[in-house]
């Protein structure tokens, strides 16, 4: 195994274990803290793939904004230091079945598509990937429509939040 593969295995195991703890720990704040470790593991995976921009954005958006807001909301609830009730209800078997089916399906698709055997394409030496990403996002030949649609959607959500919170 190469160094990168060993690193990937360590990161993957940490990420998956943390993800497991997110759903099994009885304490909500602990679950949120494990979620942060999971998201950090995903960011580390992006680094291994040479996608530094995505890695940093993952940390800024998911850890810096979403996880913090979640913990903030959880801490505003009553009895934050106490454990909540049991982690499962009567439907846990169906949920497990659904999860396993999804996992099997994704694995099947990935293996069949040949992506599992593909090696990482080398980056072009003379182009800054960040500049390229930026230009693709606003280029009419590439992703300008999805990009603008997402922007409009987020703007609408923002206006909606203000409208909901507006008094009078």
């Amino acid at each position: 195994m190469s160094d990168v593969e060993i690193l990937f295995l360590i990161i993957a195991v940490v990420t998956l274990l943390a993800a497991l703890f997110v759903v099994t720990t009885p304490n909500l704040v602990h679950a949120a803290l494990w979620l942060i470790l999971t998201l950090f593991g995903v960011a580390a995976t992006f680094v291994l793939l040479n996608a530094t921009f995505l890695a940093v954005v993952q940390v800024v958006v998911y850890i810096g904004a979403i996880a913090v807001l979640m913990i903030f909301a959880i801490m505003l609830t009553r009895r934050v230091m106490k454990d909540s009730g049991p982690q499962t209800n009567a439907n846990w078997g169906w949920a497990a079945l659904l999860g396993l089916t999804l996992f099997a399906g994704l694995t099947f698709v990935l293996i069949n598509s040949g992506a599992a055997d593909a090696s990482l394409p080398a980056l072009a030496a003379d182009v800054d990937p960040l500049v390229q990403l930026g230009q693709e996002l606003v280029s009419p030949n590439a992703y300008v429509i999805p990009f603008e649609l997402a922007s409009v959607l987020l703007l609408a959500a923002m206006i909606g939040a203000i409208a909901v919170a507006w008094k009078e």
């Binding site: 954005v57 800024v60 850890i63 913090v68 960040l130």
Partner: peptide, 16 residues
């Protein structure tokens, strides 16, 4: 090449 964004990102650990 993402130095500025990196600074913002590690700053969020302080919040946590």
């Amino acid at each position: 090449n993402v130095g500025v964004l990196y600074i913002v990102a590690v700053g969020s650990f302080g919040v946590i």
